[in-house]
Write a protein that binds this DNA or RNA. Structure first.
Lengths: 218, 218, 218, 218
DNA sequence: AATGAATGAGTTTTCATTCAT
DNA sequence: TATGAATGAAAACTCATTCAT
């Protein structure tokens, strides 16, 4: 088992100098970070409390139990990312290549590398079988919309003659799966970093790979 | 009496008909499946025992403790996949596109969809921060060799004039990351299935995507 | 947010319309009702507060702690019922049967069905071993006087030739025990209600039973 | 709060010298005694364990949680007392007075003074509103049969001309209520004892009281 | 006087591990 | 070897009580 760790409290000022309205969010922030890093079961309530700068009892003032914290963490984190897809796609007139880039960029900004919620997909993936509701929710509100978005982009590109795709469904799935998996993966294995590859570079290259492939067209 | 969870034993034949030499492997099989599905902390020793068709005490005849089972599960599962890369690459004379396909096929067969160990990457990903040794081991014996393999394939293709790649390192990383992530992801979210996409289809499309991209070259 | 139990406040008017002198009594009323229904340990201070229309902190303005509330509830409820027995008995000249009826009626009005404190005997019975003082107090100020009262009534009836009793002590005990137990019981099991028996009916029949028995005297 | 107490373990021999089959019953015995004395909420799991001569963890080997112990305690204790009433009544030819005595004796032996389960009615009464199932179960399997039994006895006596009763239902209720309450009460307030009244004496007098009343029939 | 968020001491519950058989 | 009842250390959870406002 990994050795015991000292958790730096997120907030360390005297308790009463901190606004009480912040308490729930402070707890969720602490919980999210620990759940993503260690998993739900391996994260102790006392760890969350320490990181949030409160005592364990306080968690139960705001949340029914540990599981309720998990639910809240996920629900709050997953503000629908693609709900305005139609709006964007409806009036779009530019190149399909650019549209795909916008999509990837959007996704990246939402759940990608830097954002606070970038770990949520990993968390959900790990707990999917223990908490199926989370997985269902993620599927419904994130993955399926994303899949549809990609498909629409591909169809747009095909109509405009820019793209050439054998099977739209499978290709959309391959793109989604690859990118989503990569983001998820990035949280754990940082081969890139080990090889000095910067995040933005990766995103661009990913876009490039999908668009051009690696084949040399003389 | 306190109730317990239901768990289908992996082996259900009468105990005395099973060879006692199989015991350790049966335990590892049961443990792997449960660890992958539920995570290490959420998997109870009694569950492993039940699934392996033994009692909790027996686990401790073969393994020091629960963590030792995890270690053994991972170590046994990760028989190096790429150690013969040099051999294959050394004498290869064919097309780079085919070589890439061989690589993907090989990986797929090793840790992909059907194989018993296909869940190990997910397991390691989930427990990476709790058991850094596992992550290190995986990195060293799987991911880095895979990364190098891809790089070699790309360089081979570039030398032969087949491939056209801006940045070999980043591209290799993008390919690895995408494919690895997709495999990992596949364990949890089955959008593909939901859309009726078969596994082989996905693998082929993935290869195609990397090779050709989606751009229409008149 | 952690959910809480529903509890209808005893007082629901705006706080500022209620006199602050009533506060302590409102707290006791709320506590009595909950203690009787749920028991001391199972009743939460926050429940009492909600029912009394105040916040938990307020309880501690008036009472040292939860136990002090119990003490006060019981002490206030048990205004001696029989302290004027001597007075009544001293000058009584009528029939013993009627005197017994008066006694039963008196008891009934004091701790019987309708009164607010009718649950106190049950409460004391339940908490007797946790709070022996309560039991002692009840014994001393209620049961023993009642026992003596009954005995005096019986002796009065015997002297007047109205009653025929083998053993005054035991009979007095049987009467007390039966009636007290019935009242206590009535709080929980309402077989009577289930069979459409009204409270007054029960009290009269009880008196009749004691006086005449069920034997047919041609 | 009542001071801390030392619980004498029911069994004190070395654990392995005691039969493991006894464990569940030992736990129930300990729990019953404590629940009756202190109430459910005021009884600590650790107390039950100590009294049963095991550690708290052991309780959870046999029972899901504290509440399950309560359920089991009650269910096991309440073996139907009156289910053979019809048999007895069907062929009975003797005096109704005697039949009533048999009934009272039977009840007394089952849940009365000495028996191990004599505290169960009190326990159920105290926890009725916290655990309505218990109350319902008691009502259905004990009180209602008892009520019907008494009614049948009364009707038998009326038919035979032995009894003279104004209202059978109400009288039956009065008898049940009085006797049941008295038994229940006896667990807490021992006025009788304080006055040197023996248990058997009380039971007989109770029977006498019901049958003859206290009125002097010259 | 009144508040109610936060506490922390205590309780319930879990479960990896042991050990007599 | 194998067992599985029992353990005990640790975790989750409860809630009477406090105290800054």
């Amino acid at each position: 088992m990994a050795e015991e760790f000292e958790e730096t409290p997120v907030k360390s000022g005297p308790r009463w100098q901190r606004k009480k309205e912040d308490r729930p969010q402070e707890i969720l922030d602490a919980a999210l970070e620990l759940f993503v890093k260690q998993g739900f079961a391996a994260t102790k309530v006392s760890q969350i409390a320490r990181k949030a700068g409160v005592t364990p009892g306080t968690l139960y003032v705001y949340y029914k139990n540990k599981e309720a914290i998990l639910q809240e963490v996920v629900m709050k984190a997953l503000r629908p990312v693609f709900y305005d897809a139609d709006k964007i796609l409806g009036k779009y007139k530019g190149s399909a290549v650019d549209l795909l880039f916008i999509l990837i960029e959007k996704w990246w900004d939402a759940v990608g590398g830097e954002s606070k919620i970038s770990g949520v997909p990993k968390l959900i993936s790990a707990e999917a079988s223990n908490f199926p509701q989370l997985s269902d929710f993620y599927m419904k509100s994130i993955l399926t919309p994303a899949f549809n978005y990609i498909r629409l982009v591909l169809e747009y590109g095909i109509r405009s003659g820019e793209f050439m795709v054998k099977n739209v469904e499978v290709t959309a799935y391959a793109i989604l799966s690859a990118f989503h998996g990569a983001v998820l993966d990035a949280h754990t294995f940082k081969i890139g970093e080990a090889n000095g590859i910067r995040v933005g570079e990766f995103r661009d290259m990913f876009h490039d790979l999908i668009v051009h492939g690696i084949l040399n067209k003389k």
